[in-house]
Amino acid sequence: MWNRFFSTLSLTSRIPLKVRFSFDPSRIDFYLPLIGIFPALLGALVFFLGGPGFITVILVLLVQYLGFNLFHLDGLADTADAFLGNFDQEKRLAILKDSRMGVYGFFACFFLLTLKIYLLYRLCVWIPRFPAAILAYPFSGRLSAALIPGISKPLKPDGLGALAKNARPWRGVTGALIGLSLWAVLVYGGLKVYGFFNGSGVQAPPLSALSLFGLPLLSPLISWALARQYQKHLGGYSGDTLGAAVELGELLHLGGALGLLTILDI
């Protein structure tokens, strides 16, 4: 279990691990969504230390990307370079192998980061009331990536994408559910402790707000769309597909949260 956990963490994090383990990524589909708890906790810690505001939003994304998401952002850039242009299969494959970023990749990354900043800033007014649901976007992104190997086939017999070739969708969903449960307990427990020391209470969210916890259900939309494009044009998914899925899954979660909260008007 620990070998699989640390193997997945080492693949998806830039934080050096000072533990010994045998590399075994055979359950990346289960542990990838579960590992979302680390960037989520990191973002929540920065947010509550800094307080709602534009600078805090920038810092939240900065620590999350430096610790976890830069690798995934690179996958989004490669995907944009390969698919936004009118290229044939051979050219798309060459672009995915090229380490340089093209104009499509730059545009996609700039646009995505701008949208993330905007959405998080708009959500600042709601995050102190519903932190567990809104700040759970790292789970949604990683669930989007974990589902792809279960509904498609790898582009190559080797490489990062092939590490998850025996994935099953139910394992990704299970990992996400366990991670989200732990996350909710940690957030609620932390707020209870905080309320005990400063004399404030933690109010339960209204029943309508509980629908926010359904935001990870949007993840399969990203999984299906990316898997379909890669399967249609290249014959299978790659590691870049998974990285793009993380980024787009997170963005969809934040957009869904803003839309839902605006509709609920709570």
Rank of each mutant, 00 (worst) to 15 (best):
A209V: 15
D74T: 15
H72D: 05
E247C: 07
Y121I: 10
S99P: 01
A133S: 09
F71A: 11
N198H: 10
V246M: 05
L217V: 13
F38N: 04
F107C: 03
S152F: 01
Q231I: 08
A108M: 03
L186D: 01
S13T: 15
A162V: 13
L248H: 02
D240N: 09
W170S: 11
P157F: 14
I148E: 04
L11G: 07
H233Y: 15
G85I: 14
L155R: 09
Y194A: 14
L84F: 14
Y121A: 13
L59M: 12
I127F: 03
Y31N: 01
I28M: 14
D78R: 02
L147Q: 00
L252F: 02
D29A: 08
F71R: 14
L234W: 02
H72C: 05
I28T: 15
P205R: 14
L212S: 04
I15M: 07
I55C: 01
W183M: 03
I127S: 01
G159A: 11
L212K: 05
F197R: 12
A227R: 00
G214P: 01
L163G: 01
A77P: 00
P157S: 15
D29H: 06
A162D: 04
L41Y: 06
Y104L: 02
S140P: 00
P216I: 12
A133I: 04
I117W: 10
C109G: 06
G214R: 02
